[in-house]
Design a binder for these strands. Structure first.
Length: 495
RNA sequence: GCCGGUAUCGUCUAGGGGUCAGGACACGUGGUUCUCAGCCACGGGACCGGGGUUCGAAUCCCCGUACCGGUACCA
């Protein structure tokens, strides 16, 4: 058996879309599962839309997701180059060979004429296919016209005998298309660039690709690609077509649904392992009821036969649930690194301070598990950094015995409460002095000290505030008002 | 229009000629708690429609419908 070789072949025309990320993931999973090789190929034959920046961004996003490849433009490999724009002579040569064999011909039709024909076919209710007009031009005559500088594209001559093209799709089974609906397609444009369906066939053959796993939007291109492969006498890889990813309204996932690119999900504070886990579940099922599966575990169990045939709606709520899971599972040192930028952006800490990093790490238990995304962590602990005396006082006045509880607390607490035992001891003393307990005791303390009706448990919140208040200015953390001061200030303004 | 693909709770899915049609997310109720989130328990919720085959169809077949894709000198 020949070594399985797979490829992911994005067009560098923008950010990596989650749908494409899922295609990349499935390729990666299958390559791992099969013990095969994964190739990254850049399909940049569309000069208008392709940019080097997109290529860089896509590579960065794939890396971030934890997907790796064995061969590609960045790492090279035995079948280099891996950028279609660097393989132009290869396509041109193959096109000339086809012309020589009578399997392709020059086409001089103007875009306007072609458009008119398409309209006519549409009006007549016929499949719009090229008439084949230029096929009748004598090859010698055509060669002369080209030599004289007349602009021409090259078309593939679809074999005359109409027949069914059948291929065994690895996810959906037998797919059958009749060749009579295929018009002679352009394989080399007037500008000399190859057309997609031509370039893929050559590249997949050149790169010894055995399995093509791609989006469902390519399913109707497949028969043509098989025809081209036959004409240039190369073997056809196995095909697997993945259904598309839709938005909640069942339209293809697009900007108006919110985030669509991997980069956007990263910016919103989703963890790569969560995104990748969710994406895999979108169309693939391990067969049992397990849903939280790390990449290597998925690779062990991946099977194309278990990939869904139908399109899937992208559900951010479920992604969030998975993300929560991975945040809880992550080590706190890894999490701080990921979350620090969000704290910097909020203005809570300065860049590059070890003390600030340690402080933020100590805050994590209050947020992880309560929050869906990294981006939400700073706001969950915002009360530590920002506290408004007037607002706190207002809330305390709304509490039945609020003023009394806070006043007692202010009297009892003279110094910092560095840990939960210190806080509990203080609370116990306040309880004895005021005989307030439970909600009547703790809720006034909460609103007074945090300025909020709700938030993390006080056992964690109070020590966090005082640890922050104890930090020297050099720590790179925005100044924090201690609990003792907060209580005194509220008491002053309430009484 | 034409060609192709797809169809199980709101969503992702398991299953598959006889099942209480299972799980997860979301939702609702209750519990835990000073509060929110979380966590735990419980609950409501689905086989697109019509024919056929069969003792029996959600499952197999046909038709329809809906949705998606293609119909390019985009990929």
């Amino acid at each position: 058996m020949i070594a399985p070789r797979l490829r992911f072949a994005p067009s560098p025309t923008g950010q990596l879309h989650v749908g494409n990320a899922r295609t990349a993931l499935f390729n990666w999973l299958l390559a791992k599962r099969l013990g095969g090789t994964l190739v990254l190929r850049i399909e940049d034959t569309d000069v208008e839309r392709s940019t080097p920046e997109s290529e860089r961004a896509i590579i960065e996003d794939l890396r971030w997701l934890g997907l790796t490849w064995n061969e590609g433009p960045d790492v090279s490999g035995p079948y280099a180059p891996y950028r279609q724009s660097e393989r132009l002579d290869r396509y041109a040569r193959e096109a000339q060979r086809l012309i020589a064999h009578g399997d392709a011909y020059y086409c001089f039709c103007s875009p306007e004429m072609l458009e008119a024909e398409r309209q006519a076919a549409h009006a007549a209710g016929l499949p719009p296919k090229y008439s084949g007009r230029c096929r009748a031009i004598d090859p010698a005559e055509a060669a002369r016209r080209v030599a004289s500088g007349e602009p021409a594209a090259i078309r593939f001559a679809v074999p005359g005998e109409p027949r069914d093209i059948v291929f065994a799709d690895l996810v959906r089974g037998e797919v059958r298309v009749h060749t009579s609906i295929i018009g002679d397609p352009v394989i080399i444009r007037r500008n000399g660039r190859p057309q997609y369906n031509f370039a893929v066939v050559i590249d997949d053959a050149d790169m010894a690709i055995t399995h093509v796993v791609r989006g469902e939007d390519h399913i109707s291109n497949t028969p043509l690609q098989i025809l081209i492969a036959e004409a240039i006498a190369v073997p056809t890889p196995a095909f697997a077509h993945l259904s598309l990813v839709l938005g909640p309204d069942h339209a293809p996932l697009s900007k108006r649904h919110g985030a669509t690119s991997v980069a956007e999900f990263r910016a919103r504070g989703f963890l790569p392992e969560a995104l990748v886990n969710y994406l895999a579940l979108l169309g693939w099922s391990p067969g049992d009821d397990e849903e939280i599966l790390p990449l290597d575990e998925m690779a062990r169990r991946f099977e194309l036969s278990r990939v869904s045939h139908s399109a899937a709606v992208f559900d951010v709520a479920k992604l969030a649930w998975i993300n929560r899971h991975y945040m809880k599972a992550a080590t706190s040192s890894r999490l701080v690194s990921d979350v620090l930028p969000y704290f910097q952006r909020a203005g809570y800490i300065a860049e590059g301070s070890d003390a600030a990093r340690a402080f933020v790490e100590s805050l994590l238990p209050m947020a992880v598990g309560s929050v869906d995304r990294l981006e939400e962590i700073p706001e969950r602990v915002a009360f530590v950094f920002g506290w408004n005396a007037d607002e706190a006082a207002r809330l305390v006045r709304d509490e039945a015995d609020g003023a009394r509880a806070v006043a007692a607390f202010a009297e009892v607490v003279r110094g910092p409460l560095p840990d939960r035992d210190a806080f509990r001891a203080a609370a116990a003393t306040v309880r004895e002095r005021t005989s307030l307990k439970g909600k009547a005791l703790f809720h006034p303390l909460r609103v007074a000290l945090t300025g909020l009706e709700s938030g993390p448990e006080l056992d964690l919140a109070i020590p966090a505030i005082d640890r922050g208040a104890a930090l020297p200015a050099a720590a790179g953390v925005a100044p924090i008002v201690s609990c003792a001061e907060r209580a005194r200030a509220v008491t002053r303004s309430v009484t």
